[in-house]
Design a protein around this nucleic acid. Structure first.
Lengths: 325, 325
DNA sequence: TAGCGCTCGGACAACGTTGTCACAATAGCG
DNA sequence: CGCTATTGTGACAACGTTGTCCGAGCGCTA
């Protein structure tokens, strides 16, 4: 900046004023300064600038489980767009469902003085963020609630959606429904399982633990479990898959066998209309989830200090897949 | 930091030493300082730190077209992981194929003094980055080459892959092959179309422009084009779709009609093994693409000043989809 | 023409940290 | 016991920028 000032024949402060579009500078000087800036390729250092002026960093952080997963990729896309609209840069990191890693990454983001955080929590204790919140960093949790912390949260109606879906299966006369899920350690899985149970009691169907299988990590594991269940004498007449990766495996196995079991899956997915098996999915608006969370965050950043709120977004039952030809 | 020093009864500099794990500090003092740090909730300001010490920002930027797109999401995931392994934060932004927006976002990243940039170019002139490169910011372009700039680049063998795929169709006896593509403004589309043409001449099949349709933006547009082509008297016996969104639409229409046209698609996709139509895809390793680019970038950041290199990754023909039941 | 207010430019300090250097205290040596 | 090394500590300036404040120069009025 001093070089620019020398070149333009003005004081350092005048250059600062020009660079910051401050008033009270002669048009002629402005021009000279801008010329010098262009010639010397000067660009102001935002670190020094915000150090002195105490301005925010115009950066937010987004912590998700896994970027490559379409659910999180969709969220990241929406957040990136809203961040751009707010002239804010976006730092993204993946916790890979590891609480230690989550904590480390969130700390790092806070250290970098992000203006706000959007977090899909991995661990179940986020007390370490309390100091940061009190220090004034806004934070919005999405898809799952934070542990041990009262904070803004945007969730899906996992429980209600699962209950509605199960009710549909029960109304169709199914009494033996296989329920397949990933880890019970994940909040959404617990909620969805609870929702399924909610529907059983009013229908007079007992909760049979032999029909519930957890720890299913991917499509092929799901296919194996389905195969095994169908081979039992009291095979299920319907399946409820609690996430879309499991749904894929179930479809694969049911299609392979030419089975006519009903299939209900939580999570919609791309190409769900093209899969070779009729299924009903519990769908929701992922983009709306991200939008609500990001908008809330920016309202907080702009100074909204009202009491933390929790938003729950609805789910919807949708018929998908192709009938067998 | 001054408060911490006062509380621990040491000088400010000693606190700095402790915070930076510098040697030559008495263990007892270290302890007192750390206690004061904990009590006051002190965290050093990396902006001021790097302002003074001139250290790099430990941040890289990734510019892609659209985060929600699985191709870019996969890239982002790999880059995020490699960044983490290098203790580096990752800023992600989407250009949405808009050259102006690309330029604006890249400038902003450079202003923030990122240590390096990974760019999927949207525009075709990146001369504005030359000053930045000469200033010492490493940059690696991926999936598409930069315009008007000699720089590190990691590409896929679009042309070779398309040629091999077409050759396969020609060997199977197809002579009328419908070619469907998105905009010719996109580098990869041009390369793939060139590759298709490369295969036609040696097989003695003329290039018939009536069989080539560009400007196809999504699955439903693709389905319409297929429908129209199949209704013509000299309907194609095979289709070559130049990206996976188009492939989806083609499948939909071919399946709907119960057609037996052969289908070749560029880009593999999730669930490609579950779609209700037999198809061959030109697949490649997206993760490897991202890995190669990110590794190269970090080698540059670590000081590798060798001549810019261009890496071209191979493609592979893979049979996918389910035969009709 | 003196006095007044208004505009604009520049000197200076400060943001929070660390590199440099100097000095004090201790240990090691002849 | 005095000398030099070595280690531990602190004063100071500097990184690049901007907020504060003062005063120079200007035009206007009485």
């Amino acid at each position: 900046m001093a070089d620019v000032a020398a070149r333009a024949g003005v004081s350092l402060k005048t250059v600062s004023r020009v660079v910051n579009n401050a008033p009270h500078v002669q048009p002629e000087l402005v021009e000279r300064v801008l010329a010098a800036v262009a010639e010397l390729g000067f660009r102001r250092n935002p670190q020094a600038s915000s150090l002195r002026s105490g301005q925010p960093s115009a950066t937010i952080g987004l912590l998700i489980e896994e970027i490559a997963n379409p659910f999180y990729a969709t969220i990241a896309g929406v957040v990136a767009e809203i961040a751009r609209q707010n002239d804010t840069m976006l730092i993204i990191a993946s916790s890979e469902e590891d609480p230690d890693r989550e904590q480390q990454l969130l700390r790092e983001m806070c250290t970098r003085r992000v203006d706000g955080l959007l977090v899909v929590p991995a661990g179940d204790d986020h007390a370490f963020l309390r100091a940061e919140i009190e220090l004034g960093t806004p934070m919005v949790f999405l898809d799952r609630p934070a542990g041990g912390l009262i904070a803004d949260t945007v969730l899906l109606d996992n429980r209600g959606g699962a209950r509605d879906g199960m009710r549909r299966l029960l109304e169709a006369g199914h009494r033996r429904i296989g329920i397949l899920l990933d880890s019970l350690g994940v909040y959404t899985m617990r909620e969805r399982l609870d929702g399924a149970q909610d529907a059983l009691a009013p229908a007079g169907v007992p909760y049979d633990t032999r029909l519930v299988r957890d720890g299913i990590r991917g499509p092929s594991a799901a296919a194996r479990v389905v195969s095994e269940m169908l081979d039992r004498p009291d095979a299920p007449t319907a399946f409820f898959s609690l996430n879309n990766r499991i749904t894929l495996g179930v479809i694969e196995e049911l299609h392979r066998r030419g089975s006519d079991a009903a299939l209900l899956g939580f999570d919609d997915f791309d190409m769900a209309g093209l899969v070779p098996y009729p299924l009903t999915v519990i769908a929701y608006d992922t983009r709306e989830l991200a939008r609500a969370a990001a908008e809330l965050l920016f309202r907080r950043i702009e100074g909204d200090r009202s009491w933390p709120r929790t938003v729950v977004l609805p789910t919807e039952l949708v018929a998908r897949g192709l009938a067998p030809r």
